[in-house]
Amino acid sequence: MKSAYPKQIKPYLLIAPALLLAVLFSYRPFILTLINSLHTVSLAGKRLSFIGLENYTRLFVNPSFLASLSNTLRFTLFFVPTNVVICLAAALLSNRPGRLATLNQIFFFLPMAVGLSSSMMIIKMMFNPSIGIINQLLGFDIQWFNNRHAAMTLLVIAGVGLDIGLDFLLLSAALRNVPSDLLEVAKIEGASGVQTFRYLQAPLIGSTLLFVVVTNIKDAMLISSPVMILTEGGPFRSTQTLVYQMYLEGFKSGNYAIGSAIATVVFLLTFTVLLLLLRLERRRVYYQ
């Protein structure tokens, strides 16, 4: 019996820091966000009175929020397919032997080495309409920051720049794991490149591809920092996203309760996507 007690207390002590952090920085703020979204909240962040779902009913007639919601969904819709096609093309094109291919691969994942704010500043300067290299080089006269469509395009370009490195690595690793004897057979049988991809590679990298798609959707729905650095939601709120508006409401306008309601909407959206991801993950483990 003498050793039973320390044996009981020790594991709890070992997990205490992790548990404390989980409660302090995840569960507690999560629950408080939900609660605040049902109240009026003072500028100092103090809950005043319970108002039920009023924040939400106000939110869904608020043009600024509706713009954020539609911008976030539109961004997701543009960004995910663009990014997946580009990363998959990069992985397929560089999936061959030889030194040149290795160089291609290094170039494709190198953007991963550039941090978020560095890449955003690079894009901001390169796409400057008057002295940026992009307009000068291509002979464009696009007002990247003052035109709705151009600004959204710019955000998609920024998103691809941020994600291409890792997504390329994931897809190219999956492609390299396709057994080479199968590819050899396909070649001997005279299969075209398209056929090889359609019937051989695509099914075998399917789970990685799904993983990339789902994480891209999740990241797209949460996008805020690139907006903050590049466009600040402009022009005319055309690139204002949900998390960016949440930040504005909470930190700039003092609308704490509205900010909390937006956060709750974001939770709902990402929960859906993440649960989907967990299901896919489980299926992937099953395959092995």
């Binding site: 920085f25 995840s26 569960y27 507690r28 703020p29 999560f30 408080l32 966000t33 605040n36 999740k218 949460l222 805020s224 998390v243 949440m246 930040y247 909470g250 930190f251 704490y256 900010g259 909390s260 956060a263 974001v266 939770f267 990402t270 929960f271 993440l274 649960l275």
Partner: peptide, 10 residues
């Protein structure tokens, strides 16, 4: 499951 970016207010 709880994205940190959505928890920044609290």
């Amino acid at each position: 499951l709880l994205p940190p970016d959505a928890l920044i207010l609290e």
